[in-house]
Amino acid sequence: MTSFLTLFYKELLRFWKVAFQTVAAPILTSLMYLLIFAHALEGRVTVYENVGYSAFLVPGLVMMSVLQNAFANSSSSLIQSKVTGNVVFMLLPPISYLEFFSAYVLAAVARGLVVGAGVLAVTVWFVDLPVRAPVWVLAFALLGSAILGAMGLIAGIWADKFDQLAAFQNFVIMPLTFLSGVFYSIHSLPPFWQSLSHLNPFFYMIDGFRYGFFGASDVAPATSLTVVGVSFGVLSLITLAMLRTGYKLRH
């Protein structure tokens, strides 16, 4: 237990020591998104009855920050350790693969939630945001960030260089997040793109998270929770298998 707690603490300390870059910067970015998109689209797009576009946008931005930062935390921490070689400090001690996985994923969840809470705190002043089902909000934030934390571990284990990690981020994570309905409802899309969106697990994370605020969503929240829960289960098993076999970590 001490091994796990120490590794978890180290991962928290790592992002907290550079909080300006890991917490403040993404909050500012989200605020920019809100100001620009709200200015351009407020009053022109209506998604749900009685919900203005800015209010619709805020949960999407919060969840996007949660997801992106959870991914950034585990992936960049691991790739840095691999590239600089200090990953050896974690490979020499008797840390089990389950402890390793839990520490990295939970630290990613923590970073995701801290940034998400920060984004919510600065954007909520601009809109009138109800919170109809807070438990759903929390459930999707936790599961979503855990999924991205696990994906970050997979990417960090797989990548040998920073540019490979950047490719993973730019060609997998970014398209999946931007095409998940952060900025729009998928009902506004042509049928083909609507059905394609249903294959994107990120869509269910955003849609379910949004349900927690408005009590309305594109698909039933229970369905979203199931998809998100199963995704987390599958990704966890893949990550654990990689860690157990020592793929790219222990030769």
Binding site: T2, T6, Y9, K10, L13, F89, M90, P93
Partner: peptide, 14 residues
Amino acid sequence: REALELQSGYFGIR
């Protein structure tokens, strides 16, 4: 000191 404390913790010594 932090590096040594962390290493200690990884080995289960608090």
